[in-house]
């Protein structure tokens, strides 16, 4: 709290206002800060020509973490204050049916390559993460929590609970993977000389789930629809296979 007080001009707020601790404990402040930080990050992103390297989540998440740390607010209080944003993830997932329907005539023509890539690609995504972490020396809980890393959050949490992983760790890993996948996508597209926006969408949805899908919608609505499809297929396929796959190890 003292850190925040230090940022404000002298006598900016009445003394009793701060002493009663009503401002930092008001959930509305933290929802407002999340929205304001994201808006500022979005502004920076647009000013930099929507370069993946300044993705709004990559810039706003560390900044909010710093604010929480400075003002000594527990993360669980911050989560409770931002329940509205968690909730909106559900209706937004349902809303993806509309672009999926509108772009379906494009999707039908590439259905087989997309389906095969998602089947193999979601297995590669899980295996490469778990394999590398195992080589570097992670324990079983961390390995399990990494397995659903490329699966969109609501599905990943369900998988994490099912396979005995730590859901809070999985959630963080999933979001970080989405940001990393989006940041790496221009490099990957360059290395593979991948210029077809439909295929770019498939890769973003497969490896960077919702965050990659949001990025694909910025490329083109058709890319967004392909990302939606591959995100959904990756999620459903992983939910059906991962609980059985982990029993083998």
């Amino acid at each position: 709290m003292d850190a925040i007080r230090g940022l404000l001009p002298h006598n900016f707020l009445p003394d009793n206002f701060l002493q009663s601790n009503s401002l930092p404990s008001n959930p509305l402040l933290w929802l407002l800060l999340t929205l304001a930080c994201y808006q500022a990050a979005l502004w920076l992103y647009q000013r930099c020509g929507r370069r993946a390297i300044v993705h709004p989540i990559a810039t706003s998440a560390p900044f909010i973490a710093l604010l929480l740390w400075l003002s000594d607010i527990p993360y669980r209080d911050y989560v409770a204050a931002n329940q509205l944003l968690y909730f909106l993830l559900g209706p937004t997932t349902v809303a993806l049916a509309i672009p999926l329907y509108q772009e379906f005539h494009h999707i039908r023509k590439l259905a087989l390559p997309v389906l095969l890539t998602v089947l193999l690609g979601s297995a590669v995504a899980a295996l490469s993460a778990v394999g590398i972490a195992w080589l570097v020396g992670a324990n079983r809980l961390v390995l399990l929590s990494l397995a659903p890393k490329s699966v969109t959050t609501p599905i990943a949490i369900g998988i994490a609970e099912n396979i005995g992983a730590l859901p809070t760790l999985t959630t963080g890993v999933v979001v970080f993977t989405g940001v990393i996948g989006t940041l790496l996508s221009p490099l990957v597209f360059y290395l593979l000389q991948l210029r077809d926006m439909r295929l770019q969408g498939v890769l973003l949805g497969l490896n960077a789930h919702g965050i990659g899908t949001a990025r694909s919608f910025e490329i083109h609505p058709t890319a967004g629809a392909f990302a939606t499809l591959s995100m959904g297929l990756t999620g459903i396929f992983s939910a059906l296979t991962l609980p059985y796959a982990v029993r083998l190890f």
Binding site: T34, L35, Y38, H55, P56, I57, S60, A61, P62, I64, A65, L68, W69, Y75, Y78, V79, N82, L85, Y86, L88, L89, T92, T153, T168, T171, G172, V173, V174, V175, F176, G178, V179, G210, I211, T213, A214, R215, F217
Partner: peptide
């Protein structure tokens, strides 16, 4: 869509 992942992303810190 990205914004709705933000609170979960802060959790990694």
């Amino acid at each position: 869509l990205s914004l709705f992942f933000l609170p979960a992303g802060v959790g990694l810190f």
